[in-house]
């Protein structure tokens, strides 16, 4: 926070050095003893941690791999291919995302289902996360809301480059999504049992007019959920 410092010459007291040094020393010593005698708040929900009050150290550090600050909602994280309730990808292999991708890091091979009202599906859907510039254009381009970046995590590091090439097996995860206009719900599908179809139809939502709103609030797979999970893990560890 900038504030104006007048460029005055040092007054007598300041030019004696020692008084100001002793004062600063007191400040540092206060922090030292506070952090020495009090421990950090180890609450796994890092956003709710207490700091600096009585009984807590002033420490701000997160022990990174073990403790993580959740990313804010709307954070463009690792891609995922959104699954349908029956486990198949929503993707129809239209190549829109691959075309929109400025880094040209999406590779798709299309195939056909024999038993499904949609004509195409991705036999191969590969994203090179190392080339990806995390622009989110693929998410915007997708007409089926089949690719999202709402996983709330960044691409995990790896020792080999090959591990950064994510294929459909690894990408297809997270909570499933259904919309009322989905062809497999409107027309039904031989691969989905009638009861299951009823259930899926009941759960389907209208297509959102503003896609990003919905994506940033995906329930069950969000930063809050991660924090909740961490809290539960800690509870379990305590027991």
């Amino acid at each position: 926070m900038p504030y104006p410092l007048k460029n005055q010459p040092a007054d007598l007291r300041e030019s004696m050095y020692f008084p100001e040094i002793i004062r600063g020393f007191g400040d540092l010593a206060r922090h030292f003893f506070k952090n020495l005698f009090f421990s950090r708040d180890r609450n796994p929900d890092v956003l709710a941690r207490k700091r600096g009050g009585f009984g807590y150290s002033d420490n701000v550090t997160l022990q990174y791999p073990e403790e993580r600050a959740p990313y804010p909602p709307g954070y463009r994280g690792l891609h995922r291919l959104v699954p349908r309730e029956d486990g198949r990808p929503r993707c129809v292999a239209c190549y829109m995302c691959a075309t929109a991708c400025p880094a040209q890091c999406i590779y798709i091979e299309a195939g056909e289902y024999a038993d499904d009202p949609i004509e195409k599906y991705p036999v191969k859907f590969v994203i090179d996360e190392m080339r990806c510039i995390v622009c989110g254009f693929c998410v915007e381009a997708c007409p089926k809301d089949a690719i999202r970046m709402d996983s709330g995590e960044h691409t995990p590091p790896s020792y080999e480059r090959a591990a950064q090439i994510w294929d459909q097996k690894r990408l297809l995860r997270g909570p499933s999504v259904s919309y009322q206009y989905d062809p497999w719900l409107r027309r039904g599908s031989p691969s989905i049992s009638p009861e299951k179809l009823e259930e899926m139809r009941a759960r389907a939502k209208p297509f959102p007019s503003v896609a990003t709103d919905e994506a940033s609030q995906t329930p069950g797979f969000s930063v809050r959920a991660l924090a909740q999970e961490a809290r539960e893990r800690a509870e379990a560890a305590k027991r």
Partner: peptide, 10 residues
């Protein structure tokens, strides 16, 4: 360690 404690680190 001491410098860390003075600077609110671990």
């Amino acid at each position: 360690k001491w410098s860390a404690m003075m600077q609110n680190r671990i």
